[in-house]
Each structure stands twice: as structure tokens, then as C-alpha cells.
Design a protein around this nucleic acid. Structure first.
Lengths: 189, 189
DNA sequence: GGTACTATCCTAGAGGTACTAGGCAAATAC
DNA sequence: GTATTTGCCTAGTACCTCTAGGATAGTACC
């Protein structure tokens, strides 16, 4: 039996690619084993179980996306930063729907993906600096921001906007314009 | 073998309750069969397959929610209608997370759940009448509305807001206030 | 009431997925 | 060159989906 050279990282990478191709929900230990030409049981030397594999994919995705976002936001503030962030986010989700789905699991605080997720959350908060909100308003705003972007992207990915002819790009741009206006004129508590 | 009296509708109802208890993803044909005290194979006289069951739960949920929303929105317009709609939506998702998850599947246009889903979409559009938007703006607005509400609720349900101490109810109220302001002052195309 | 029919539930079994226990051989350490 | 670790294997359990075909409970009709 020649050794294939599997590692947790290579399994995670392959699982992420598989997720983008066939959907995150269809990424099974069996499918991954087939991809490497080995038996299912062989994977359990590298990953704890199927859940562990999913968490690793989430960690990979959070790290990748945070890197991209950090680069795109460097030197930008206000609406520029908002647009840079949001477009990175949407591009990533469109190009990597499986990885994006992986990020939507509920992650235990002690999970492997918790640190990358926190880094990602910190970047989101950085958008708001230029809008100068009070601490409570900042929490509300970050929740609104996350909800709008995440909601828009998941609805778009699941095909909810295909029933209408208007281009999704236009609606996305309007949504971001509206968000910028809301942040600029944040209602009093 | 005494007959239990299963029908597609009773199975769907039980599956919906099961989904709220153990999570939509854990609703299996086997678990449902156990619930009725029969063998797995017996269910296939009433439902086509597991996917069919999931679609039926989605149709049930869309119908239930549309009924609730229609009643709550009767006689309301503008911000009142928006609040009524949004709060019904969030309450339902909180009380019935399994049913809510069922609604998030991508539904084929010919599916059993397509008609209830369309009815629900029509109710969403009704919120916007009082804001008097142009046809294109209305599409953008409905997408923004759906994205914000759906995004907020899914993030809340998956626990994304638990890391911060501020009450989610307050943030939700602020989000709706912000949405109302955005709709009232919709930016030019 | 008896007969025919249909619907409901059953047994049996194939095939997929998750995972464990224990074995053997390849790579590595010394 | 031997000892140890590590990687992949076989074998097997358990659970899930779904099909084929059989037995019986309920219904329709005479």
C-alpha cells in the first residue's frame, strides 16, 4: 500500500474544493476518501470525525476571506471601506459557495474556527470607525451590516432573486448605498 | 398490525414538529417512522422520498407564516406594516426554527412549496406600497428588505449575536427603524 | 354475509455513510 | 539494522434511504 501523503491540511483543502463543486452539505468522509483513492477509515488518522472536518473547512474559509478583506480594506475608510469589504465578501461567496456555507455553521467558542472567525468580525467592525458611532450604536450597526450582507448573499446564492429580471448587481449597489446613508445618519437611540 | 392512520399531511405535521425539536437537518424518514411506531418502509406509501418530505414541510411553513403575516398586516401601512411583518417573521423563526430552516431550501419552480412561497413573497411586496417607489426601486427595496430580515434572523438563530452583551431585541428594533428611514428616503437610481 | 379490491403495513434486502478496533507494512529515529 | 511510530488496510457495527413483494385490515358491492 503506497502512502498517499494525506495530512489534515491537505484533507481540509480538498474538502473545501469539493464543497465548492458539489455543495458543502454533500462533502462526506466517503467522498473525500474516494478523492484520495483510499478507504474511508484511513481518514480518521488525520481528522477526528466528520464534524471536525467541517470545522476545519470553516477555519480555512474564515482565514482566506479575512486575508482578502484585510488587503482590500487597507488604506480605505468610510464608504470606500464598506464597498471594499462588501464586494470582497460577495465575490468570495460567489466563487466559493461551499466554503461560504461552511462559515455559516454555529461554531462553539472553543472551536478551531473561533479565532479566524473573530479576526473576521474585527475587520467588520473596522468598517465603522469612520462613521463615529456610540458603542451601543456600533453593535447595532455591525449586526445590521452583517445581516444585510449575509442575507443578501444567501438569498442570491439560493436563487431567490432569479424570479425577477432586474440585475442583482444593481440591487447590491443600491443596498450598499442605502447602508452607507444609514450609517452616516444613524438614528438616535 | 393495527393501522396507525398515517397520511401525507399528518406525516408533514409531525415532521415539522420534529424539525423544531431536533433541527430540520436531523429530520429523517427513520426518525419519523419511530415517532409513529412503524417501520421505515411504511412511510413510502405516503411520501415519495425524503426530499419530498422536506418540501412538504417547507410548504406547510410558508402557508402558516403567510397566514400569520396576512392577519397581522391587515389594515396597516408604512412603518406599521413593516413592523408587523418583520416581527411576525422573527417570532415565527424563533418559535419554529426547524420550519424556518425548511423554508430556506432552494425550491424548484414546480415544487409543491412554490405556490405558498409566492404568496409569501407577494405579502412582502405589499409592505412597500405606502412608500411609493419606482418599479426598479421596488425590486431593490424588496431584496434589501428580505436580505436584512432573513440575514438578521439566521445570524441570531445560529448564535452570532451571543458574543456581545447588548440585547438582540434592541438591535432588531434599530434595524427596522433604519429600514423604514431608508425606504422613506430611497436614494435616486 | 361473502367476495373482490385497495390501501396500509410488513419483511427482506441492497447500497450509502460514519465510525471503531485491530493488523501489517512503510517511513523514520537511533 | 533494529525499534518505533505512523499510515493505510480489513472487518465489522450502526444508522439512513429506498425498492420489491407479501399479508392483512378496511371498503365496496352483490
Amino acid at each position: 500500500m503506497p502512502r498517499v501523503g494525506m495530512t489534515a491540511d491537505r484533507l481540509t483543502q480538498a474538502a473545501a474544493e469539493l464543497a465548492d463543486e458539489i455543495g458543502f452539505g454533500n462533502v462526506t468522509v466517503s467522498a473525500l476518501a474516494r478523492h484520495f483513492g483510499v478507504k474511508d477509515a484511513s481518514l480518521y488518522s488525520h481528522i477526528k470525525n466528520a464534524h471536525d472536518l467541517r470545522i476545519r473547512v470553516a477555519a480555512l474559509a474564515f482565514t482566506e476571506l479575512a486575508d482578502i478583506v484585510a488587503a482590500a480594506m487597507a488604506g480605505r475608510a468610510g464608504k470606500d471601506a464598506l464597498l471594499a469589504f462588501a464586494n470582497c465578501y460577495r465575490d468570495y461567496a460567489t466563487r466559493h459557495p461551499g466554503r461560504y456555507a461552511a462559515m455559516q455553521q454555529d461554531l462553539a467558542a472553543d472551536s478551531l474556527a473561533a479565532a479566524p472567525a473573530r479576526r473576521h468580525a474585527d475587520l467588520t467592525r473596522a468598517i465603522l470607525h469612520a462613521y463615529r458611532l456610540s458603542p451601543d450604536a456600533e453593535i447595532d450597526a455591525i449586526r445590521l451590516l452583517g445581516a444585510t450582507m449575509h442575507g443578501y448573499i444567501t438569498l442570491e446564492l439560493t436563487g431567490s432573486f432569479r424570479h425577477t429580471s432586474r440585475s442583482s448587481d444593481l440591487s447590491w449597489t443600491m443596498a450598499l448605498t442605502a447602508l452607507d446613508l444609514t450609517l452616516s445618519n444613524w438614528p438616535a437611540d
